[in-house]
Design a protein around this nucleic acid. Structure first.
Lengths: 208, 208
DNA sequence: TGGGGCATCAGCCAAAAGGTTGAGAGACCA
DNA sequence: TGGTCTCTCAACCTTTTGGCTGATGCCCCA
């Protein structure tokens, strides 16, 4: 049986070589190529046709991981794509799955978890880190936590640091309405203050 | 000549093993121990007395890198401490240098840069990544905008969404003092509200 | 046709945050 | 030794925010 060929995509050299060293301990897994950006990843896939692509999402410059996943998917290529990243933001998870990722691993995952994900990927099994899975389940269980379009619009201005008065002017609504929306947003985000909402939104939701 | 003994501190296994593999290519550098948290780092320093400690700042749980650096410094230990982290926020840099770090490297640094930093560290030379250096230079040009260590510490908690009361409790100071610090931070960041400060800090400073 | 969700607004009150001024203690440095 | 910086705290006042209740109009859809 041939070993499973893997392409590593991460802009950090140390992460790539760490992952390579780790995967190298498994006889049935072989790292055949590395890439430091989305662009490089596309080229490497063409050249090496790996069975599995392990992809970081946040790449320093150029094409990010999500975009790279989308482009790979658009080619009808048969690689299984695993996201391997540091953060488990709801927005990132949703976007990655939507783009066509097969699994979602966090960088602090145990080695066995990583091996299992690679082996599972080529069999069409979806493996994800526990925190990631629990976030997904939570979203399924609590659909009420989804922001309405107007709330999302307000939130996107809120995280710019605007006051209630400014939000009202910008959205052509009264301060009272702003406060109503904010109360709903806080409830959905599970916070009590505007400061926490901003912090949570920027981090957890990946908003900028 | 004995090789330079190095302790790696990072909560991510792949980063540790990547860094270990990288440093292993240099005959004059030897990784003698690894730690996954601040607590482990303190124990490992006692046990192995490394010449250089490479420390991540954001540790998943428990004591963070800054606190670990402070405690090492308090012991009069002679280790040179290098920060090795993903982000180059002004506040983190200020806090790390203040805590007693010898150098500040980013995880996407070139191997040569990392080797040079380790070798420089034991000679008392301070080596830092280019983006970090340029931030420091910019701070030198605009000294009025540089946060003091205490302000940086406060800001790092502020962007977690804490209230004034919580900030006070966490830092063992009164709310009055918190408000004084906040006023100074706002002035330095060029904002007027806490919301804007959080938004600015997270974006401009790359803070998380 | 009657809910239900969404967006809008008002008023009231309590809590939190922000602006200002002033001040003391300790560190550092010229 | 005097000046400057940092960190600490207080009192006072204004503005902003948050919590609550209740209400209207609209649209969709069962």
């Amino acid at each position: 049986m041939n070993p499973i060929s893997v392409l590593l995509v991460d802009d950090h050299l140390v992460v790539r070589s760490g992952l390579k060293a780790l995967l190298g301990t498994q006889p049935d897994i072989a790292v055949v190529a590395e890439a430091a950006s989305g662009e490089e990843a596309l080229v490497a896939v063409d050249e090496f046709s790996p069975a599995v692509v392990m992809m970081d999402l946040a790449m320093g410059a150029g094409m990010d991981g999500i975009e790279a996943i989308k482009r790979l998917r658009r080619r009808n290529s048969k690689q299984a794509i695993l996201v391997f990243t540091t953060y488990d933001s709801d927005a990132d998870i949703v976007r990655a799955v939507d783009a066509g990722a097969m699994g979602y691993l966090l960088k602090d995952a145990a080695p066995e978890e990583i091996f299992a994900a690679v082996r599972g990927a080529i069999q069409g099994r979806s493996v994800m880190s526990a925190p990631v899975a629990s976030r997904l389940f939570q979203q399924l269980r609590n659909p009420d936590e989804v922001l309405t379009p107007r709330e999302a619009e307000l939130l996107s201005l809120l995280i710019q640091g605007l006051s209630n008065r400014e939000l009202g002017k910008r959205l052509f609504i009264s301060e009272a309405t702003v406060k109503t929306h904010l109360a709903h947003i806080y409830a959905k985000l599970g916070v009590e203050t505007r400061a926490a909402a901003i912090a949570t939104a920027i981090r957890r939701e990946g908003m900028r």
